[in-house]
Every structure is written in C-alpha cells, then in structure tokens.
Amino acid sequence: MRVGIPKGLLYCKYHPFFETFFRGLGAEIVNSEDTSKNILNMGVKVCVDEACLPVKIYHGHAASIKDRCDLLVVPRIMQVHRNEYICPKFCGLPEMIVHSIPGMPPVTSAPLYMHSKKSLFQWCVSSGSAITRSRSRIRHAFELALKAQNSHKTGIMDQKDITVMLAGHPYIVYDAFLNMDIVNKLKAKGIGILTEEFAPCAASESQVKKLLKKPFWTFQRNLFGASAALYEQKKIHGIIYLSSFACGIDSVVIDLIRFHTGDFPMLVIKFDEHTGEAGVDTRLEAFTDMLERRVLNEDNRPTYGQCLYSRQNPV
C-alpha cells in the first residue's frame, strides 16, 4: 500500500503525525517534492481560479503524486483549537481536490479536530481502514504518531542587532519557493528573524484577550497574539507579514496588527503567481534600509536632512 502525502498547506506543521501513522501500519509513504515551478504550473492548471496561491500549490502537490499512490491523504482540518476554526478552504479540501483533479486515487475525507485526541483517533480508524481492520494495530500506530507529532517543533529564532518578526500562515513562511526564499534573503542582509512560535504564550494570550471579541480563526489568534506580544515586549524592530493575494483572514489580521502597533514598521508582502523577484527585493531592501536607520537613530535624533546617509550610518 502506497500512501501519498502532498507537501502543501499545513504539511509543514503536521506531517509527522500522518507519516508516522501510515508508516506504523506498514504503508509506504510517497511525498511530493518541495514546491517548484512544475508543482505550481500543475496546480494552477487544475485548480479553480478563485483559490489562493497556497491552495493552488497544494493541488499541484496532489496532482504530482496521484499516480504513484493507492491512497492520498488530504486532511480536512476543521479545528486546531477548541471553538476556533481555520480557513474555510480546509473544510472542503477533499472535495476540491477530487473534483478538480481527474483520475484521483481514493482520498481520506474524515474531518480532523486536531485538539481532540478522540477525533484524531476516529480519523485514524476511518483512514486506516483501507489498510487494516485491526483496532489494535491502528491504536498502536496512532500512539506512535501522536508522540512523533508532539516532538515536532517548527519556528525560526535567530535574533540579531536588527530582528523582524516574520509573520504569515505557516505554509507561506515555510515554503521557500512560494515566498521567494525570503528567509535566506533576510539572512543575507544580516537581519534576525523571529516567528510566531517563539512569542511568549502568556503574553500572546493576554493580547488576544484584549480584542473586542474572541478570535474566530486560529490563524488570527496566533498571528495577532504573537505580533502584539513581540511588539509590546520590544523583541522586534519590525514586522514582515507574508500574505497570499486575496486571503480573507489576512485582510482582517493585518489591520488588527496595524491598529494595535500604530506606526511601528510593518511590511506586508502579497504573493501570487509572480516569479519575478525584483518587486520583493525592492521592498525588502527598502524596509531593511529603513530599519537600520531607525535603529541607529533611536538615541541620536539627527538634525534635518543630515543623518540619512552619513559616514557613520552608511546606506
């Protein structure tokens, strides 16, 4: 039995669970390759036009391995936290995939409530039934999968003289093709990076509590809470928010952060199918130029028109 796991969307967060579970049942795991131009082209070709870029890329990943596996794992992730939802596109992902890509093998379609052990187990029973009917084998593989998942950590913590928070949905932050390798671009400029995973939990929670209403989306809780906490604790000099074009959740979250942080430097970069990097490079370069000058000038406000490019402060 070959089980295909596309490397798109929340794969970066949850792949140990799925891979360990199916490997525990004796299946062979077939992964798609890292996102590439081929994957993007395939995804754009089959996916509905209105979807966001990460969903299109997910379609490309699924299409690239569909002929090499007997079962494709398309997680229908409903919730990650109790009483909160993630993006609505996840709820209908299996249907989208099956109806957009011709010639699909069977796909997993049971819903996943990641915060509930019971729901996860039910998913395993339903999805594992294609391989085995033995409850005990499923139970064993499930326990291994949970363990693997719990020891899986993501995030970037690399603090330097100038550090930015790299915010955005995980599948944008951790997909180097989609985000035009922004992590290495920042590294090359000597800029430190913090991601939402390294924001102090308690401080994030207390920021979220200050909102007018409880967040509906988990992405909103994580991104707003982390940005606000890192900003309040002065751990960062700016925020770079990576967003895919036409993301509904981001349209709310970006403004929530802006409203909270006032004139704190924040750069929003929108990604779509562009592969020309000049636009991103210009924005990053200008943003880091600005941060460098702001930091250097914090204690030493210049007289008019003098400090922008002095010898002590080369551009």
Partner: peptide
C-alpha cells in the same frame, strides 16, 4: 526629521 520612518508600496 530627515529619516525615513515608514513607507508603503
């Protein structure tokens, strides 16, 4: 004060 403090494109 002669320093870029913010920009948008």
């Amino acid at each position: 004060d002669g320093v870029v403090t913010d920009f948008a494109m």
